[in-house]
C-alpha cells in the first residue's frame, strides 16, 4: 500500500510540476495561434519577465505595482517584436521566422542580464515549497503547496484565456486573424491591436510561469534551459491547441518524474534532462501533429 501511495505521490508531483511546463507552452501556443510563428523566444521571455519583476521589487515597488509594471513592459517588448522583427519578415518561410525568434531570445536574455545582473535571485511569493499538512492528514500524500498553487494558477489562466478567446469580440477577431490575416484585416479587424493583445497575453503567461519557477529554483539563467522543455510539451500537445499545451505538460511532467524515480537510479540519474525529448520523438513517429493539433497537410 505504501508503495502505491508513493507512486501516486510521484505522479501527482510530476503532474503539478508539469503545469509549469504547460504555462511556458501556453505562451508559445498563444503566439502560434495568432501569427503562425514558432516563438522560440518564449523561454527567454519567461526569464526576462521574472527578472524584470524581481528587479522592480528590489527598487521598492510593492508586489502588485511591480506585477503591473512588468506586464506593461512585456507589452512593450511584444509591440517592439511585432514591429521590428515580425512585420519585416512577413510571408517569409517558417524556418526564417524561427531563426529570427532564436535571435530575439538571445537579445532578451542579454538585455535582462545587462539590466539586472546575473546572480541568482530569491523570489518569495509567500507560498512555501513544503507539503500541506491537511493533505497529509486526509490522504496521506505529500503535496507541495507551491506545486498546488502553480496548478491552480495554471488552471485559472487557461480558463480565463479560453473565455477571452471564445466569448469576447477581441477573441473572435483573434480567431479570424489566425484563420486568414488578409481576410481579417480587409473586413476591418485591427490587426495591430490584436497582435499587441496576444503578445501581452503571452508576456503575462511568461511572467506567471517565471514566478512559479523562480519561487522554486531561484530566478536564474537556468530557467531558459528549463523552458526549452516546453518544446517537447508542444510536440505532444500540438502547437495550436491550448488544451494540448496543458495535457502535454502533464504527460511530460508525470512521465519524467516516474522515469526518474523508477528507472533513473539504474543509470545514475538525471535522465530528466533528455527523457522529454525522447518521448517527443516517439510521439512524432506516431502523431506528428500532436494530440490536439490540426492535421498537417503539405502541398507542393
Amino acid at each position: 500500500m505504501t508503495e502505491l501511495l508513493f507512486f501516486v505521490e510521484v505522479v501527482v508531483a510530476g503532474l503539478l510540476a508539469g503545469t509549469m511546463y504547460s504555462l511556458v507552452a501556453l505562451g508559445f501556443v498563444l503566439i502560434y495561434k495568432a501569427s503562425s510563428t514558432f516563438n522560440f523566444a518564449q523561454g527567454a521571455m519567461v526569464f526576462f519577465a521574472v527578472l524584470a519583476f524581481v528587479g522592480f521589487m528590489e527598487l521598492g515597488l510593492p508586489f502588485f505595482l511591480a506585477f503591473i509594471v512588468t506586464i506593461l513592459l512585456m507589452g512593450l517588448v511584444g509591440y517592439c517584436t511585432e514591429r521590428l522583427v515580425l512585420k519585416p519578415l512577413m510571408n517569409q518561410s517558417e524556418d526564417t521566422l524561427l531563426m529570427a525568434t532564436i535571435g530575439l531570445g538571445f537579445v532578451l536574455e542579454g538585455l535582462a542580464q545587462a539590466a539586472w545582473g546575473v546572480e541568482v535571485r530569491r523570489l518569495d511569493l509567500g507560498i512555501g515549497d513544503f507539503p500541506i499538512q491537511w493533505i497529509i492528514d486526509t490522504f496521506g500524500l505529500f503535496v507541495s503547496a507551491l506545486d498546488l498553487t502553480a496548478g491552480l494558477v495554471a488552471a485559472s489562466l487557461i480558463l480565463g484565456l479560453s473565455v477571452l478567446f471564445k466569448y469576447t469580440k477581441m477573441g473572435l477577431g483573434l480567431r479570424a486573424v489566425a484563420d486568414d490575416p488578409g481576410a481579417a484585416s480587409s473586413i476591418g479587424i485591427p490587426l495591430n491591436n490584436i497582435m499587441l493583445l496576444v503578445w501581452t497575453a503571452a508576456g503575462v503567461v511568461a511572467l506567471v510561469a517565471g514566478m512559479m519557477w523562480g519561487a522554486r529554483a531561484g530566478v536564474q539563467f537556468a530557467l531558459v534551459d528549463l523552458a526549452l522543455k516546453a518544446l517537447p510539451v508542444l510536440i505532444i500537445g500540438g502547437f495550436s491547441s491550448i488544451p494540448g499545451a496543458i495535457v502535454g505538460g502533464l504527460i511530460i511532467g508525470a512521465t519524467e518524474k516516474v522515469l526518474e524515480v523508477y528507472i533513473g537510479p539504474y543509470f545514475g540519474g538525471a535522465i530528466e534532462g533528455w527523457a522529454p525529448y525522447v518521448l517527443a520523438i516517439f510521439f512524432l513517429l506516431y502523431r506528428p501533429e500532436g494530440l490536439f493539433g490540426e492535421k498537417i497537410i503539405r502541398r507542393v
Partner: peptide, 24 residues
Amino acid sequence: ATIISSIEQVVFGVLIIIFMIYEP
C-alpha cells in the same frame, strides 16, 4: 565582464534578426 558578455549576446541576437530581414 558579465555586462560585456550580455552585450555580446544582444549583438549576436540583433545581428541574426537583421541578417534574416535584410540578407538571409
